[in-house]
Each structure stands twice: as C-alpha cells, then as structure tokens.
Design a protein around this nucleic acid. Structure first.
Length: 196
DNA sequence: TCTCAGATTAACT
DNA sequence: GTTAATCTGAGAC
C-alpha cells in the first residue's frame, strides 16, 4: 500500500479532487486497517467564496495554508467531523473535501462505529465517513503522504480506469455554479445521486 | 418515498 | 445573533 507523494497535492484543488477518485483513504486504528475507495470529493480553493480559506487564515483553517498533503479536519453543524486533504499551487490555500467512500477494509469496525449495517450507509457522506473511520480533530494536520494513522494510497490492484463526472457542489450557498464536485460515475456509494 | 426540523459548536458580523 | 462544506428520525402522503 503505497502512499501518494507530496507532489500529487502540489496542484490546484480542482485538479487534485478528480485525481483522488478511485484512490484509497486508509485509517490505522488500534492496529487494524480501515480503508475505502474515494468515490466523491469536492475542491475548495482560496479564490472561491465557498471555501473556508477564502477570508484568510484563522485558527481553524490554518492547515490549508501549510504544506500540501496534510489533513484539514473541522467540526461542522455542532456534531460532525469533515475531512479534507490540503492541496495547493504556489500561493493558493485550498483543500479537497472527501465526501464519500466505498468501504474496502475493516467493514465490521465501520459498522460498529456507525451503528448501521447497510454498506451504503457506512461512508456515503462527509460526516458519515469521518464517524466510520473514527476521524476527529486529534488527527488535525496529520501528514497523509506517509504510512501512519491516516493516509491516502494507490489501490493495490490498478483495476479498471475510473470514470469521473463533475457536478455542482453540495450544501453550500456561495459559488454554487462551480462544477467542483467529482464523483465516480455510477457508484452506489456517493452521498446523493446525480439528478437524472 | 419525501419533506422537515432538531441537534449543538465555532466562526464571523 | 446568525449561519454553516450534515445526518437522522418522525410524520405526511
């Protein structure tokens, strides 16, 4: 399981986000490996009014202004954690929100952490996948380019090429027209199906 | 199957 | 004081 190199993240978030579709998000928890294929991701960059990094650096978002390839985790709506990987080009400050996974490893542990049985309800949303992988602010700023408690890796088997579709982002009120949500076409595991 | 409001914290005005 | 990169269960239909 080979982590993706730093250079992968030294690009604009709108380039990194579609490239992450089909990669593995890996969580090591108490010696057990939990992993899922990324099937949905959204790009946020500093010139984007919907991004937390739009209005400059704060205590919460400082990770997005740091080295690319780290975890930016924030607490949302008073109850959910959401996970981003930081990515940026030169002076940009941005990240990619991991919105949904296809469970691969440690599925029983995910079921226990989520209190749900159905495979499609384990990680089909940013708050859900954070709960399924036990991701919280203790992992803030973790380097995801080296094996550790949390990292992103190339899938063991290359498999078939991934079909990526671009759609408008979910749950935001600004810059709704930017097609910066990327999903694996036809996946059953994304947070909400593209409109037919 | 669909719509709706509650939960609960932190950032920002 | 208001809003937010969300999820869930309840009640309507």
């Amino acid at each position: 399981m080979q982590p993706l190199p730093r250079s992968f993240y030294e690009r604009h978030p709108a380039v990194v986000a579609p490239a992450l579709i089909g990669k593995l998000l890996v969580r090591e928890l108490d010696g057990e490996l939990l992993a899922g294929r990324i099937v949905e991701a959204e790009a946020y960059s500093s010139e984007d009014p919907a991004s937390h990094s739009y209005n400059g650096m704060t205590e919460r978002n400082r990770a997005m202004f740091g080295l690319p390839g780290h975890a930016y985790i924030y607490f949302s709506y008073g109850m959910h954690h959401c996970m981003n990987v930081t990515s940026r080009l030169d002076t940009d400050a941005g990240g990619v929100l991991i919105r949904a996974l296809e469970p691969v490893l440690g599925i029983e542990t995910m079921r226990r952490l989520r209190g749900r049985e159905k495979l499609t309800e384990l990680t089909s949303g940013p708050g859900k996948l954070a709960q399924a992988l036990a991701i919280d602010r203790a992992l803030y700023g973790v380097d995801i380019t080296e094996a550790g408690p949390l990292f992103v890796a190339e899938p063991a088997e290359p498999g078939t090429p991934v079909q990526v579709a671009a759609t408008p982002r979910i749950g935001i009120s600004k810059a709704v027209e930017l097609p910066w949500r990327f999903v694996e076409a036809g996946s059953r595991f994304i947070s909400c199906p593209p409109r037919r």
